Amino acid sequence: MIDRRLRVLAAIARHGTVTAAAEVCRLTPSAVSHQMQALARELDVALLEPVGRGVRLTPAARTLLEHGETLAAQWEQARADLAAHRAGAVGGTLRFAAFSSAAAVVVPKALEHLRGEHPQMRLYLRESEPARSFDLLAADDADLAVVVATPSIPPVSDPAFDQHSLFDEPLDILVGPDHPLVGRRGVALRDLAADPWICGNVGRAYHQLVTLACTTAGFAPDIAHHADEWDTGAALVARGYGVALVPRLADLPAHHDTRRLPITTPPVPTRRVVAAVRAGSQHQPAIAAGLDALRHVAGTALPALGR
């Protein structure tokens, strides 16, 4: 019921280029340009202006986007209010988007909980990077995203989304069986400042976590290898090609001989796990049930985090 071109304009605002906005909106760049030109003509205001290889929103476009965010949140709230007039059990489809560790550990437990509490619900999970999960929410291709709080995601103040903290997860050091730190009772992150590091590819959440943790500990990691899959990283660590940071809940492959060492000396790196929804949608019955299930799982997961 809201002009879909407002979603395209919001994607341009988030990503800074017509090409990137076209990709997340599943349109061609020419279609995005045509839609923005048509919208500008209808409103009789300029919406975009070129800046280098990208574009930026004009003041008029930002005003329009503010109204669009308000309309979107009110529509989501209207859907929640209308649900109160429907009798019966909670049903419908609930679509999750989650980063790799959450998709493997946290969300499946939430799905199991939902299946027991609301058997009529249809549940769907898509694994995706945190920034991409927000694109899926904005495009109404997901209802609930489980993400890691990194600089690549929208800030908590972004009016298009509501973000709910689930838990803080410590990160451990993963080393090979012959590493000099094996057997020590206490480990500091800076003890590994001279080691080669195995890290995710640039731009991904894991890369951001590792570089930020090491920088906070006072050193820049010497990244020797890039690996996005835990199996690849663990294989390299087991054979002495470097060390890695791993989340406490990460289920590492048992066929690689590695040692997980908790970091006991501050600063102890952690990552914040957050559930995000479109603004105004958290009171819709299916989404509210999903948030409750995630909070239930977070409560049962915290003892495993050593907290």
Rank of each mutant, 00 (worst) to 15 (best):
V32Y: 00
H34P: 00
H34C: 01
H34K: 12
H34D: 09
M36N: 07
M36F: 08
Q37M: 13
A40P: 12
A40Y: 11
R41I: 05
E42M: 10
E42T: 12
V45H: 10
A46C: 02
A46E: 12
L47R: 05
L47H: 04
L47T: 08
L47C: 01
L48Q: 04
E49W: 01
P50C: 06
P50D: 08
P50Q: 12
P50R: 15
V51N: 00
G52M: 10
G52V: 02
R53I: 07
R53T: 15
R53M: 01
R53L: 06
G54L: 03
L57I: 01
L57Q: 04
L57P: 03
L57S: 02
P59Q: 02
A60M: 08
A61P: 03
A61H: 03
R62D: 11
R62Y: 00
T63H: 02
T63M: 06
L64K: 04
L65Y: 03
E66D: 11
H67N: 12
H67W: 08
G68P: 01
E69P: 03
E69V: 00
E69H: 10
T70N: 06
T70S: 09
L71E: 15
L71A: 14
L71F: 07
A72S: 13
A72H: 10
A73V: 06
Q74P: 00
Q74L: 14
W75N: 09
W75F: 14
E76A: 13
A78T: 12
R79M: 11
R79S: 09
R79G: 06
A80K: 10
A84Q: 15
H85E: 15
H85A: 15
H85V: 13
H85F: 15
H85W: 14
H85M: 13
R86V: 14
R86D: 14
R86W: 11
A89P: 14
A89H: 10
V90Y: 05
G91Y: 01
G92T: 03
G92M: 09
G92K: 04
G92F: 06
T93V: 11
T93I: 05
T93A: 09
T93R: 15
L94G: 10
L94W: 05
R95L: 02
R95E: 10
F96S: 09
F96N: 04
F96R: 03
A97N: 10
A98M: 03
A98Y: 06
F99D: 12
S100L: 11
S100F: 03
